[in-house]
Design a protein around this nucleic acid. Structure first.
Lengths: 363, 363
DNA sequence: CTGAAAGCGCTTACAG
DNA sequence: CTGAAAGCGCTTACAG
């Protein structure tokens, strides 16, 4: 196997240092078009020719067509961005976020796309929302303050899909009927005789401020998920006091429940906006000698398996989280394919009664 | 403000449907080069000209230069890939993975780069490792079976950084001295009089097979992290029985510890390869009436705060996980900048003695 | 089945 | 401070 001399006008090495398709074609003695076809399989190429091209590629250590050039030419980058509003650490603290991401990755990967993880900081000078290549974007998080990101991406004409967000022009939506299902779980409590009920909410602002939910904070918030679930609870218990957590964490649930129980010692039920918060609430109740559900009933939200806690079955709302992720991905992919029957999707969550709710105690 | 008529040869609308820089330049009455400069700020442009260009962009609803074209021209995509060997759900179950990703995102974002999340399936037809645009890649996970991914990426001439992986040609490394620190924690146990010690390891194969660690499984495994930590423990306790967990989870720690304690009722200490596994081991001990550290000492690894468990301080090895992520990102970024003082980095983890270890009980 | 040509949308020397 | 020209590396009609 002697290597043919490099005796042509094409530069021996591209500016980048990597070999190019043109060089491979030349060495294989075919045109660039044929070489391209040999790699993509998009057109008819004889086996013999294809072998020659692939051999030449091997000899030149060519790793395949450059995705940058390809994406310019085809108009597709093969990238779907997932935009979260917070740092990775915060966003992924919530197991629900992971599960949803998993659903997204699943569907996107199957379609040959990759997932770009972006943080919502439109002020950042370069990179990120403003500059990253993407064919579509999925926005999610705890749903506060998405507007700047939407503006930047909208101006770039990137098709947008929102998960659990306020409806917006030109943005497809994936939601679930949280408000209704939470109301249903509130009615369950009501039927069990509970009247003094407390609420623990997800973060309601970007700063994740912890503390009692005042009227001011309520009007100032646009955290879709938290507000929807709150509305569901208050549809049944209009005056229920609420404590805002700074994240979906067991520790936060404990903190919030302690304050709730301090301020309202006669409280007989707690509605938490996530399972982790609910577990924290149970721990807080138990640490002051209250039994669940004997003295206090606790309702959660999510229906996730929680690592390390196999002892009890939470009364909770089970949401199809991975399926929501998959639906968001399909919507994003569909927007690229100009799929005309793209429609907003509303998923149904289901109330699952476990062993953490019971009749209100008679005092 | 009347809009000038479109009276030129440039097509009114690009093939993609989005306006182009050329159209903006034309409308502003400047050359494409000047328009480009107005956006990038890379050269001198008079304020007046820049304003005209930006105004034209606004009128045409131009969202800024197309990243695809830019990246072809500049040779940079602005993307750093992070490659995990498993599905998102599995990879991110481990809070350590999240913390590291956070460190990576931090550093990458500050440099104007974005993070592409890839799963290691080199067999996938399109997309992913083979086709996604990227300027460099960081590989991590529980470190099994990275070779195919490395081969694909290497052939594409993508600079590679491995975190906790076996050294490989042409790949920068970020590691920590796990083996030594685990050995140190083993010596602590030894000095406390423990001789019958059990080990709970991280997954040792891709399938995350759970169960006793046999000689066969040991030789078959190439899970860098787990093997290193195992070697540290066995340096002090050569014959310590080990149980392989299928993930870094409290539940898994419980399962493994139960089996360990069943098979070796006289065991007085358990070394777990993660804090979550250690917490599970504590729960397993306590559920059979053993006290920690009275009857059984437990050592962990990671030094992470675990949500919902504020009651005790684990004896563990604290590793600078986010810092490792940042270092990996700097290495990747450095490779792009042809930074010549790029060197493999070895971090130091530190043994932190908590309240889960004590003298071996006299029986 | 193969090749010649055009062009995706930009940025960067270079000249003025 | 501004413009004309070249070219990044591909893929896709189109013609043969």
């Amino acid at each position: 196997m002697t290597r043919p001399a490099n005796d042509d006008a094409t530069p021996a090495v591209a500016a980048t240092g990597r070999p190019t398709l043109a060089q491979v074609a030349k060495r294989a003695g075919v045109s660039a078009s044929t070489a391209s076809l040999a790699f993509s399989g998009a057109g008819p190429v004889s086996d013999e020719t294809r072998d020659r091209v692939l051999a030449a590629a091997r000899e030149l250590d060519y790793g395949g067509p450059d995705p940058r050039a390809r994406s310019l030419r085809t108009g597709r980058s093969g990238i779907i961005a997932v935009v979260m509003e917070e740092r990775i650490r915060d966003g992924f603290t919530d197991p629900m976020a992971i599960a949803m991401l998993d659903g997204i990755a699943d569907e996107i990967g199957a379609a040959g796309y990759s997932m770009l993880l972006l943080t919502d900081s439109p002020d950042r000078e370069a990179g990120g929302l403003r500059d990253a290549p993407m064919d579509a974007a999925i926005l999610f998080g705890c749903s506060t303050d998405l507007d700047p990101a939407v503006a930047v991406l909208g101006q770039r004409h990137v098709p947008l899909v929102g998960v659990e967000t306020t409806p917006r022009d030109g943005m497809r939506l994936v939601n679930s009927n949280d408000r209704d299902t939470v109301a249903e779980s509130a009615r369950l409590l009501s039927e069990l005789g509970h009247t003094r009920v407390g609420i623990i909410t997800l973060p309601l602002d970007r700063a994740r401020t912890r503390g009692p939910l005042t009227a001011d904070r309520l009007t100032a918030s646009d955290a879709y998920t938290g507000l929807e679930r709150l509305a569901g609870a208050r549809a049944v218990f209009p005056d229920a006091p609420a404590m805002v957590a700074s994240g979906s964490l067991i520790d936060e649930g404990m903190l919030a429940a302690r304050r709730l129980l301090d301020q309202h010692p006669d409280m007989t039920a707690i509605m938490a906006q996530s399972d982790l918060l609910a577990i924290g609430a149970i721990q807080a109740a138990e640490e002051r000698g209250l039994t669940v559900p004997g003295d206090v009933s606790v309702v959660g939200f999510d229906g996730a398996r929680v690592d390390g806690l196999t002892t009890r079955t939470l009364t909770t709302v089970v949401q199809p989280i991975a399926e929501k992720g998959r639906a968001a991905a399909r919507l994003a992919l569909g927007a690229l394919a100009d799929d005309s029957d793209l429609r907003d999707q509303v998923f149904t969550s289901i109330l699952r009664v476990g062993d953490t709710t019971g009749p209100a105690p008679v005092r």
